[in-house]
Design a protein around this nucleic acid. Structure first.
Lengths: 216, 216
DNA sequence: AATTTTTGCCGTACGTGTACGGTACAACTT
DNA sequence: AAGTTGTACCGTACACGTACGGCAAAAATT
């Protein structure tokens, strides 16, 4: 196979895929999240419905592509909001995370609240961090806290704990928008501070790497 | 309208509804969660598909009925596992919660990880606590901790915080079963202990009852 | 140049949740 | 008893996601 021809082919494929994603974005903007259907999307780009499946395995993969864009934006915002004080930097990241999740519940749902059965174990790790570049930033800011001595322990374990608490708050607020949590963003911040307080009490050991996985 | 006749009607309606729920349980047991479809369910009870909608507003409401049964079982298990020491009682509740969520991911999803757009604000509170009787138990055990002086502050705020952390862990473990959190149940317990440590640091104020609700 | 393989796209078809309108029978009103 | 209203149930129909098979053109191999 001629390499340049293959490359050109790959490029065209990527372009068409990008065109589909752009069309999907437009559809969502114009008709809302439920307005995005395979058929409408296909019509919009001038293909038959089933042709879309040459570029995406299923609808979930399209939604994921949209969500990845949104999460890239979250990462951008986090980097633009980085106070010098390591704890304040951590809290700023949390604030951006909260604002993003509460402001983009659909994208948040597709990444964090829907099944990921497809991926075999070895892919999942990098996949997760590509879909959620914010996590890398949290790790960095945890490391800053470790360096400053305001936290002690394993960076990834601490970051995962903070992520767990942030996710718990955000996802509950999304699922139960009417439950009396008080001001949503304030609730997320409060839970973040609670986690920081708990983490400050003792040194955080690494996560045990037992293979243990949950059923289902 | 004759009151007894109305009551009999109500009763029959409830019986048919219960029959549908039983059939739904059977279907899920025999064919798995995805095997539960309106048509199969209707066939099984001898009605036309659309007749099911005389008893449930939509499919989600059927899934919710199944989940409520499961959550009632969780509450039962929690009550059967109640150490004397208030902190250990709290941890036991958490352990049951973890085991339930990890062992019944489908039911957990339908209650905690899907939209609840229908219910107007005033219903939500009682609704939530009927669907999730475990929450009431958590509040009780928090109150025991308050009485014993190992925690200080507002019971509902503390219970909500613990619930948030438990939910964060469980839902992440369900969504990313392959992510290296280590042993799932151990991870939930660890996060619970972290929250308890954070809560022990200072007195927990009540949740502000600002109307604030999240968009979407 | 001839042949095989791959690729890009499509048409059809199935099973799904559910909106809508209709119909027959029960219950209540007068 | 006659008329009105409500209710339980059904049949049809729609848009959806997507499995399957096909088909022409391009690419790779011989």
């Amino acid at each position: 196979m001629s390499s340049s021809a293959a490359q050109r082919r790959e490029l065209q494929k990527a372009e068409l895929r990008a065109e589909l994603v752009a069309a999907a974005h437009a559809l969502v903007r114009e008709e809302g999240y439920d307005g995005l259907t395979i058929r409408k999307l296909a019509t919009r780009v001038g293909y038959a419905p089933m042709s879309v499946y040459s570029y995406f395995a299923d609808k979930q993969e399209i939604l994921m592509a949209l969500a990845e864009d949104a999460f890239a934006d979250l990462a951008r915002r986090m980097r633009q909001n980085q106070p010098d004080d390591p704890i304040e930097a951590m809290r700023a990241a949390l604030a951006e995370y909260a604002e993003f999740g509460l402001g983009n519940p659909n994208e948040y749902r597709t990444v964090f609240m829907t099944e990921k059965q497809k991926h075999p174990p070895e892919e999942t790790f990098e996949q997760m961090e590509r879909e959620n570049p914010a996590f890398q930033i949290i790790i960095e800011r945890v490391q800053a806290c470790l360096a400053a001595g305001v936290l002690k322990g394993d960076a990834r374990a601490i970051a995962t704990a903070l992520w767990t608490v942030a996710h718990g708050s955000v996802s509950l607020l999304i699922t139960f928008p009417f439950y009396p949590f008080g001001d949503p963003k304030a609730y997320v911040m409060r839970m973040g501070d609670l986690a920081m307080a708990g983490l400050a009490v003792s040194e955080t050991p690494p996560l045990t790497d037992e293979p243990g996985m949950c059923p289902g």
